[in-house]
Computed example of a mutant assay.
Amino acid sequence: MSKVISFATQKGGSGKSTLALVLAAPLATEYGLRIAVLDCDYQQSIVKTREQVDAANFAKLREANPDAQYPYDVYPWQLSRIFDFIDNPEHTYDLIIIDVPGRADGDDVFNALTACDAVIVPLVSDYLDRASTAEFMTILEAIKKAADDAQIDFQYYGLPTKRVAGQREEKEMDEYIDGLGLSRFNSYLGHRKAYTRASTLYSLLNPAWARYAGGTKDTSDEIRRVCEELIERLGLPDRRATAATSVSTVSSSAK
């Protein structure tokens, strides 16, 4: 059965869509997960990245290899139809990622969050972001308590993003979240230009694409730590040996 997660927050500009882009490709290509991304955000950033940024490179790939595929599937989707996708018995994805709109109001957002096994919240250390993010995570804590009472598995985690090493605000953010008793990842993503150049076609763990995007070994190390913590926390399969022998990973529904 698929695990379902969302990258969510109630404040725009926190990088939730970027986070989905940064992680989905390496989880598919390096760790061998069959992944679907449901782009439910009004801006459709992930869909646009595939259609407007990656399409030309994909066409070139197809010229050289007609069997080439994107590493994971992307669907423009309506929040109101989340369960139509999740409950479809024909899907054999390991992981379904939902990119929800940057708000916490409305039954559609609430229903999408409760459909998830885990919600990942970008943690940005800016003071104004901090209070808004903590408020959103408190809502998730209430959902978790209700889920626990109903014996339904639901988790949420803060994931530090745009982190700048040594800044006082970063330490204060960690202390603030920990002081509220909220959950967060031990790993993090730094404030790196390469993450704004994430692709739905190429992983930033691909050395050639990483160089093009301005990535470094530190970039790769960060991404691997986050991917492996996510896999461990959600109990996802790790198929690195299988993925390493494949030229590209094809989702079972993409054939």
Rank of each mutant, 00 (worst) to 15 (best):
M1S: 10
S6L: 03
F7M: 13
G12A: 04
S14Y: 01
T18N: 06
L19H: 03
A20H: 01
V22S: 00
L33N: 03
L38Q: 00
C40Y: 15
C40F: 10
Y42K: 13
R50A: 02
V53K: 07
V53C: 07
V53W: 10
D54R: 01
A59R: 12
L61N: 12
R62E: 14
P66I: 08
D67I: 04
Y72D: 02
Y72H: 05
V74D: 01
V74T: 08
Y75E: 05
S80R: 12
I82N: 04
Y93H: 09
D94Q: 09
L95W: 10
L95I: 06
I96W: 02
V100N: 08
A104W: 11
G106T: 06
D108M: 09
D108I: 03
A112R: 04
L113I: 15
T114D: 11
A115L: 10
A115V: 13
C116G: 05
A118F: 06
P122N: 09
Y127M: 10
D129E: 11
S132C: 06
S132G: 10
F136W: 11
T138Y: 10
L140A: 03
L140R: 03
E141Q: 14
I143R: 07
K144A: 10
A146C: 03
A147E: 11
A147H: 11
D148V: 14
D148A: 15
A150C: 06
T161E: 05
T161R: 11
A165S: 13
G166V: 09
D174A: 12
E175T: 15
Y176D: 12
I177Q: 07
D178I: 10
D178S: 14
D178Y: 08
L180V: 09
S183Q: 13
R184K: 15
R184M: 13
S187K: 07
G190H: 05
K193E: 13
Y195F: 15
Y195M: 08
S199K: 02
L201H: 00
S203H: 05
L205D: 05
A208N: 09
A208Q: 14
Y212E: 14
Y212L: 05
A213H: 01
A213F: 05
G214L: 04
G214Q: 07
T216L: 08
K217G: 01
D218C: 04
I223D: 00
V226Q: 03
V226S: 02
E228T: 14
E229S: 05
L236M: 09
A243L: 11
A244T: 08
T245N: 09
S246P: 00
S246R: 15
V247H: 03
S248K: 12
S248G: 06
T249E: 06
V250Q: 12
S253H: 07
S253T: 13
S253I: 05
